[in-house]
């Protein structure tokens, strides 16, 4: 398996959120500003990659009966490390993500990949799997954030980008105001908006997949007819 193929799988054909339907809670809860989305996505990417490597490294020595318990302990360990590091060095992010950082422990993506992929594959492939799946997760979060921020409050890149300061990593950037926030549909920044936005993204994904399948079918049909002729 090469990197390109894995990347395509992680981001599109086997996307953790849109195809495997895992880890929905955080996806809807924290995608209110680009800062949150990128921060959460990268945290999951790092934790996922570390857990993948660790699980893959010890896959031959752990007894099968208690493997889930061991996975959970390892995941909780990495999550706590990331949580503590964020609290210490990027406190703004830790504050705005709140309880959703420790809750990565029960994010089904991580235990799902450990169970379905890493306990059967060597370290190298598991490592790239962590990165590609993490990127797929981050991509969906970022798209959600962009849509909710833009339509909800007319902003782009809240927390991460500032008109005067450039890129801000401490979450103080006010973003670029594209239109007056009074005209935004502020329902999208509310919890309800999370459900609605994800619903529409899912629908768009399904429509696109269906269209692609139809095109393929038509092409096959055309080829068949050509053969017959």
């Amino acid at each position: 398996m090469n990197f390109k193929k894995q990347l395509k799988e992680g981001v599109i054909t086997n996307n953790p959120i849109l195809v495997q339907q895992l880890g929905m809670c955080a996806t809807m809860a924290i995608t209110t500003s680009l800062f949150n989305g990128v921060g959460m996505g990268l945290s999951v990417l790092i934790i996922l990659t570390c857990c993948n490597v660790a699980v893959s490294a010890i896959r031959k020595i752990i007894p099968d009966e208690i493997r889930l318990a061991i996975f959970v302990v390892i995941i909780a360990g990495f999550v706590t490390i990331v949580d503590l590091l964020l609290q210490a060095f990027i406190p703004a992010l830790s504050e705005s993500l709140g309880v959703f950082i420790p809750l990565i422990v029960v994010n089904c993506i991580i235990i799902g990949r450990a169970e379905a992929f890493c306990q059967k594959n060597p370290i190298g492939v598991s490592f790239t799997d962590g990165i590609t799946q993490g990127l797929g997760y981050t991509a969906v979060l970022v798209v959600m954030c962009l849509i909710r921020e833009f339509l909800g409050s007319g902003r782009f890149g809240g927390g991460l980008i500032d008109v005067t300061k450039g890129i801000t990593l401490d979450g103080t950037g006010t973003g670029i105001q594209l239109f007056n926030s009074d005209y935004g549909a502020s329902i999208l920044t509310l919890p309800v908006g999370g459900f609605l936005t994800l619903g529409f993204i899912f629908a768009a994904m399904q429509a696109a997949l269906k269209k692609a399948a139809k095109k393929k079918e038509e092409a096959a049909k055309a080829a068949e007819e050509e053969d017959a002729a």
Binding site: G77, T80, I81, L84, L85, Q87, A88, F89
Partner: peptide
């Protein structure tokens, strides 16, 4: 390991 990380981050 967590104990070690905690020592670094507590300050």
């Amino acid at each position: 390991v967590l104990g070690a990380v905690d020592m670094v981050t507590r300050g």
